[in-house]
Simulated assay, not measured.
Amino acid sequence: MSEIRAVTGRDEGTRGRAARTPPLWLTALSLAAFVALIALGVWQIERRAWKLALIDRVEQRVHAPAAPIPSPASWPAVSAANDEYRHVNVAGRFLHDRETLVQAVTEEGPGYWVLTPLQRDDGTQVLVNRGFVPSERRDASTRRDGNLEGQVEITGLLRITEPKGGFLRNNVPQHNRWYSRDVAAIAAARGLHEVAPFFVDAEAGSQIAGGPIGGLTVIRFPNNHLIYALTWFALAFMLAGRLFVTFGGGLFRRRRVVQAPDGDPDAARRRTGSDAGTIVEQN
């Protein structure tokens, strides 16, 4: 004859909670990760707003009418945030014998930027990136026809100095190897004084026949912040879902009651559901 034994809901529930509840440290770590993921998403939204404002600001500067470069008195205050990519013009006389070649890769292929000091009437000097030349025209003797003498006026974009070198490559002034347009280092190597702390990228309209190819400035600001934000938020909500299943799933379980004949003294013990014990049948 079969014997029916009821395991009380208190005993079974205690064992179930012990098995389902993660350690306190893991719970705290999960909550901290959720907060961090939300914070990263909000930060990317803020970065996106900043990037859009930067793009709009640069677009306005590039397409504005050309204005004179900042005066020497304001040079210490020149910054990327306030001045980079301003449409400017500057006049003076090129010092072609002090030009510097900086390695470059452009839409025209590999080669060099030609940076030439421009001597101004007030005694100050401005480095001008006259444009690009391929490797076979590295020697200045191959482009003498493009080296104008006398007074010239250059129109282009104000660029901020690029100190220390290019990506994974440092400038080596003593061997005349340049990978970035480091104004201070180039000025020191060429014996220049009173040099502006920025340089000017000459635009195509300033190009001289037979000289470097101007107007190749690349203005590109990667803007993937929305994708990053959605990724962080998605991870946060996935983690929140996991926490809900772990801690809140039992709140929505439906209770089931097995009806027993009237007068059965064991009816209450044979209830089933989240508040009752497990009925085990033994032979």
Rank of each mutant, 00 (worst) to 15 (best):
R10F: 13
G13V: 00
T14W: 15
A19I: 09
A19E: 14
L24H: 04
S30F: 13
A36W: 14
I38R: 06
Q44G: 09
R47A: 09
W50E: 14
K51W: 09
P65Q: 03
A73R: 07
A77P: 10
S79M: 05
A81Y: 08
N82F: 07
D83N: 15
V90A: 05
G92Q: 06
E99I: 10
Q103M: 12
Q103W: 08
A104C: 07
E108M: 10
D121F: 00
N129A: 00
S135C: 01
R138F: 02
S141D: 11
T142A: 11
R144H: 10
L168N: 13
N176C: 05
R177N: 11
S180Q: 05
S180P: 08
R181E: 09
A196E: 01
V200R: 00
D201P: 02
A204F: 09
S206F: 08
S206A: 12
G211D: 03
G215M: 03
T217P: 03
I219A: 03
N224G: 06
L226P: 07
I227K: 13
T231A: 14
A234G: 14
A236N: 01
M238A: 15
R242C: 14
F247K: 06
D262P: 12
D262I: 11
R270C: 06
G273C: 10
D275P: 05
T278G: 09
